[in-house]
Amino acid sequence: MDPITFLTQILAPALWKGLIVTVALVVLTAPFGLLLGTGLALGRQYGGRALSTACSGYIVFFKGCPLLLLLFILYFGLPSLGLTLPAFTAAVIGFILCNAAYNSEYIQGAVASIKDGQMTAAQALGMTRAQAIKSIILPQAMRRAIPGLSNEFIYLIKYSSLAYMITVVELTGAAKIAATRYFMFNESFFAVGIVYLALVTLTTYAVGRLEQRVAIPGMGVKT
C-alpha cells in the first residue's frame, strides 16, 4: 500500500475515532481532577492534623507512583480483589487520581500565597471560615494557580496516551494498531504526533486566552 492511500484511507479515519476517545478521556478527567485537587489542597491547608496528613500521604503516593503502574493496578490488579472495571473507566479513574495530586500542589501553593489580611478582613465582616475560603480565598487562589493548572491539563492530554497500555484505543492506540497492521511505523507515529502537537498547541493558546479573560489588575500571575 502506498503511503498516501494508507494515510487517507486507513490512518485518518482511525485517528479520528481515536481522537474522540482521547478527548473524552481528557474532558471526563479534568473537572474531577480539579475538584479533587482543590479538596486535597484545602484539606492540607485548613484541615486538622489527621486530614492534612492524609492529604499529604495521598499526594506522595500518587505523585511517586508511575501513572502506568497506577493504571495497571486499577485495570489488572483490582479484578483480583473482585472489582473489575472497564478499561476506559479504569483509565479515567487513574487519570483523575494522578491529575488531582499534581493540581493540589499548585492550588495549595496559591492558597498559601494569599495574604493573611484577606481572611482577617472577611472574618471581620462576619463571614465564617468556610464562607471566606469559598468567596474570598479560592477565587484569588484559582487565578494564581491557572498557569500551573493549565500546565497539568496539557500534561493530561499527553499522558492520556497511556490508556492504550490498558487496551483503550485512543489516538496512540489507533496509530499503533494501524502501524503494526500495515507496517507503516514512521508514517503512523509522525501523523499521530502531529495530532498531539496540534491538540497541545491549541490548548496552550486557549489557556492563554482564558488567563487574559480572568486577569484582574494587580493580581498579575507571576511566571
Partner: peptide, 23 residues
Amino acid sequence: GSRISGYRQRIGMVFQNFNLFDH
C-alpha cells in the same frame, strides 16, 4: 463560639493595610 460571626457583622473593622479583596 460560632456565634461570633453574627457579632462581627455588627462590629466593623478598618485595617492599616486596607485588606480590600484583590479580586
